Amino acid sequence: MSVPEREPLRLMAVHAHPDDESSKGAATTARYAAEGVEVLVVTCTGGERGDILNSSFVVPDGHEFETIEGRRAVRELEMARAAEALGVRHRWLGFVDSGLPEGDPLPPLPEGSFGLVPLEEAAAPLVQAVREFRPHVITTYDPSGGYPHPDHIKCHEVSFEAFHAAGDPERYPGTGAPWQPLKLYYNHGFSMRRIRAVHEAMEGAGLESPFGDWVASRDAREIPERELTTLVPVADYFAQRDAALAAHASQIDPHGFFFAVPRDLEADVWPWDEYELAESRVPLPERAPGTYEEDLFEGVRSEVPA
């Protein structure tokens, strides 16, 4: 007798700007996509207010980077290349980048930007995406946004809202049939656990660490560590992550800190992407202290019907 095919697992990764999907959890999405999981990256804004952060960047022929529209077009091109490198599907929500306000006091956000959109208006297209794609697992940012960019904080808010509202038939009418995701995770792209481990390994190998000032400054600020529940082994997918990073040529310096750590050293000391399980609608086993999940779909695989 033939074994019945099981419904494919589905993972949705929600990010604020193009390039965030390549610097936070990229190897995870590449791994699951390669293993046959359907993976959709959702990007809330077009990254229209991102500056050129790579001194060697050359604006592609036929494009310009001086206007909001020109920057959006360039970053759409970069995002398409990154998604191809990761092997994932991609969807824009269509909001406009808020930019990172600087100064004391902080200036107001630009009119019409993502950070100013009311929650239900901002969450509606994500609820629709959830109902159409029907993810079993969603990843996004913690309530702080990972760092205090208004779009990262808003990204958390709309993701949290969509996780809880998409399964309620009374909410967000006109956005599709209800669908309840089973697990919500916060990705920890640059935890101090990871930074310290890599920093100490670099110094132990006699190499110059790109994280020395970062370790000192974050220690001085006493930034609290969030709970770590899940370590997904992803060293075999560092190459795909790096290709996706490089695709964002306006933002990622190929000689910058993203590429400063030898990959064999990184694989030895920190071969994981790390996550915090925020909520689960499926039962999970009790874990001994100091042990972690290794699979975002733990507890989900047995719930997905054939």
Rank of each mutant, 00 (worst) to 15 (best):
E170Q: 13
S23N: 08
R71W: 08
E276G: 05
A30M: 10
P173N: 07
A267D: 06
V158I: 15
D295H: 06
T140G: 11
D142N: 13
W272D: 03
P181H: 08
D104C: 10
A246L: 15
Q251M: 11
D51E: 15
V3L: 15
R226D: 06
Y141G: 01
E303L: 14
E76H: 04
S2D: 12
R6G: 08
E203T: 14
P181R: 11
Y185V: 06
D142G: 13
F160Y: 10
Y147V: 05
D20M: 01
V41W: 00
F238M: 09
A306F: 09
Y172S: 06
F211H: 08
Y172T: 06
L119K: 11
V42P: 00
H199T: 02
G36C: 11
W214L: 14
V59Q: 05
A80L: 12
L207V: 09
P135H: 12
R134A: 12
E276V: 04
A246Q: 08
A122F: 07
G176S: 09
H90C: 06
R171W: 05
V3F: 10
R196E: 01
N54G: 04
E293W: 06
T29V: 15
G146W: 01
T140A: 10
Y185L: 10
V127G: 01
T43L: 10
V37M: 01
A278N: 01
R72W: 04
A197H: 02
E161A: 09
R71L: 12
E102A: 14
F133W: 02
D295T: 10
G212M: 01
E21F: 05
D168I: 12
K154D: 02
E120Y: 13
S144G: 15
V234Q: 04
I252D: 00
D142K: 05
L77V: 07
G290S: 10
P210T: 09
P110N: 09
A82Q: 03
A216M: 13
G174V: 07
P283Y: 03
A288M: 11
G70A: 10
S159G: 13
P18S: 09
E286Q: 13
F190E: 00
R49Q: 14
F258M: 07
G174E: 13
P285F: 05
L231N: 02
L182E: 10
Q240W: 05
D268G: 04
V74S: 11
T140Y: 03
Y147T: 11
D61M: 10
N54P: 01
V3K: 13
A247M: 06
A220M: 10
E170H: 13
E276H: 11
P181W: 11
Y185R: 03
C44R: 00
S302L: 09
A288S: 13
